[in-house]
Simulated scan of single mutants.
Amino acid sequence: MHTATYTLITGASSGLGKEFAIQCAALGRNLILIALPGGNCASIARNLAAEFGIKAEVFEFDLTDSLALQSHVEHIMTHFNVDFLINNAGMGGTSAIMDTSLERIDQIIQLNVRSTALITRLLIPHLLKNPKSYIMNISSMAAFTPIAYKTVYPASKAFISSFSLGLREEFAGTGLSVSVVYPGPIMTNSNTTRRIISQGLKGKMGLLSTPELAAIALRRTLLHDPVIIPGLMNRINHLLMNLLPLGMKLRIVSREVKKEIQYA
């Protein structure tokens, strides 16, 4: 077994994934960064290695390509000791189902659901070889209710939630700890920023900066917390929404989300 341990982060070239990379490097953790080709992941890795004196490796491929995923992960397991998996890569969007292409639906399911399940299954035997290891899966507050005009996205995030909690129970008593994070709105790019702003005060409730969100998620994952809802307003919102009947909750959330369509 290789002595140096690594944190593997998917979707690491921008947004929350990039912030996880920065903060893990600051903690002295070696990195394996996975991202799509053509991004700036190699530059991020070089800068973090130089600044924090850690090792950083980059693998650029499409996670929705299951053959490429299996090949790269097997190579990683052969050459590196991964003790922390952060399944961050994901995609969504807002549109009426009839205006959503079959390709887009397939992409969301393949990235959010299939690739997360596959990479986790491949790495679990490897993770278990360490005395302590961690999986952090990024779900969403959207996992807690169905949402019209998103439909596939919250369903995919509900899968992440169920998958993560099932895994945690399955590996209770081992050295592997599984946590699931439910972020609220994140201004990771211009599209999501416009959609959040379009909702006014309601859209900004629970909004955390990316560094703050990443710091909470990392700290609580390393403390073995199973369920992580960053931000007081998000936790209050979750409690209040649980008091509402499903039909009412669905209508309220969907009405607000519908406002995003013009910015999608």
Rank of each mutant, 00 (worst) to 15 (best):
P146M: 04
R46A: 07
G93H: 07
M136S: 11
S140H: 06
A96L: 09
T10Q: 12
E57G: 03
L102C: 08
K150L: 02
T151S: 13
S177Q: 11
V82H: 02
G206I: 03
N137I: 04
G166K: 10
E256R: 13
E103A: 15
V257P: 00
P185M: 05
M91R: 14
L201E: 13
I252C: 10
A50I: 06
S115W: 00
I76P: 00
I160N: 00
A117D: 02
D62V: 03
T151V: 14
S95G: 13
K55I: 02
R168S: 07
R220E: 14
G92K: 10
L218R: 10
T193S: 14
T7Q: 05
A158Y: 02
S179C: 08
A68Q: 14
G38F: 12
A148V: 01
L201H: 13
A215M: 07
N40W: 03
I9F: 00
L222W: 12
P154Y: 01
L118E: 12
I197V: 14
P125G: 04
M1T: 14
S161M: 03
L123S: 10
I34D: 00
F84Q: 02
T94I: 11
N130I: 03
S164H: 11
H75A: 06
P146Y: 10
V152N: 07
L207N: 06
M241T: 10
I196M: 10
R104Y: 11
A89N: 10
P245V: 05
Y153E: 09
G11Q: 07
I124T: 13
S162K: 07
L222G: 04
A172P: 03
E51R: 15
M91P: 01
Q199C: 07
H72Q: 13
L223P: 04
T188C: 06
I32L: 15
N81A: 15
L85V: 05
S95A: 15
L31N: 11
L223F: 01
G90T: 07
T193D: 05
L167C: 08
R220I: 00
G247Q: 14
L63W: 00
I186M: 15
S156N: 06
V181A: 15
R251I: 01
L122F: 08
S177F: 06
G11T: 11
A12T: 09
A45M: 10
R29P: 01
C41P: 01
L167D: 12
Q70K: 12
M233V: 02
F52E: 04
R194G: 02
S209Q: 09
F163E: 05
D83E: 04
M136G: 03
L246F: 07
F61P: 00
S115K: 07
S140R: 12
Y263E: 11
K132I: 02
V227C: 06
A4S: 15
L167T: 08
L118T: 09
A50T: 10
H126P: 02
I22M: 07
R220N: 05
A215P: 07
V73Y: 00
T10Y: 01
T151Q: 08
I32Y: 07
A172G: 06
E256G: 15
L232H: 03
L250I: 04
L16T: 05
T188L: 11
L208I: 02
E60N: 14
I228T: 05
I138K: 08
L250M: 11
